[in-house]
Write a protein that binds this DNA or RNA. Structure first.
Lengths: 143, 143
DNA sequence: GAACAATTAGAAATCCTTTCGATTTAATGG
DNA sequence: CCATTAAATCGAAAGGATTTCTAATTGTTC
């Protein structure tokens, strides 16, 4: 994963801040809010506005290199995922780690919508919440 | 669907406003925002605060009689659905109608998470967007 | 390295949603 | 039917995440 390359590829200028924002997500592989990313970068840049973080995250997301989490609290969270083909995610509710899922019921859903509801599928979202391997162990032992 | 009965069942007082809010959702069967519901009820009640609508929708949702839509704009929308067993929905992006889907990949997903990721599923969301029968016809003819 | 367009800072605005204290209303039971 | 009490409502105001705006800065290109 080459940050500069990726940014250029989507027609964005390669700025240090933009790179740093992407880098955080690439390194942590958990979903983060704009403010959390801002906090992590404050030490690295004397001047960094929260709007800059918001704007960059939105641009990166538009460019298809990072993704938004569907979160029950209806706030913005982003995560990086290398896998660019269509797939869904398993999100750990304890540590926020995001992992790929193979399974996607697209076919069955499309068939049902077309055959029974006589409608047309445009898109679908699917997200699974739970405890990842590590957190599920930790919890079993702790409680 | 008896509104008063349903409200009592969840330990809520039967007030005219609460009934009217529920009634709108039951009659329209599309997802609506608190403000849209408020607009529809302004004529019916001289005094009706938007916070009242918000509060009631949240209570009804807590009671499990109405549901929140997962919407990309991250705003609140609610809809009524008679079917209380676990299932997902097909949402028309044109008219907002919400229809039940049979299919749910719960089993396969749980198996994948447990067997491959060694994690534990707690919950999952799934929502399909598209054009319902009527809107898909209308669009074909219009464009 | 000059020119230009894109990016950023910082403050302020926006807008959805929630909170608060005071008032009203539904439910209960005598 | 009326009194009591807890729940519900009003209206204003606060809260808080996100976006907008203008001027200043910085990458990119040639």
């Amino acid at each position: 994963m080459n940050g500069s390359h990726a940014l250029k590829g989507m027609g964005l200028k390669v700025t240090p801040k933009r790179l740093a924002i992407l880098d955080i997500l690439v390194r942590e592989l958990v979903y983060l809010s704009p403010e959390e990313i801002w906090d992590r970068l404050k030490g690295q840049f004397t001047k960094l506005g929260l709007p800059t973080v918001y704007r960059n995250l939105e641009e990166l997301s538009q460019g298809g290199i990072i993704y938004k989490i569907i979160h029950p609290d209806r706030k913005l969270y982003y995560y990086y995922c290398e896998n660019v083909s269509h797939h869904h995610h398993f999100v750990c509710i304890a540590c926020r780690k995001v992992q790929d899922l193979e399974f996607c019921g697209e076919e069955q859903i499309t068939r049902e919508v077309e055959d029974i509801l006589k409608g047309k599928v445009v898109s679908h979202v699917c997200q699974v919440y739970g405890l990842c391997r590590g957190c599920s162990h930790a919890r079993t032992m702790a409680i």
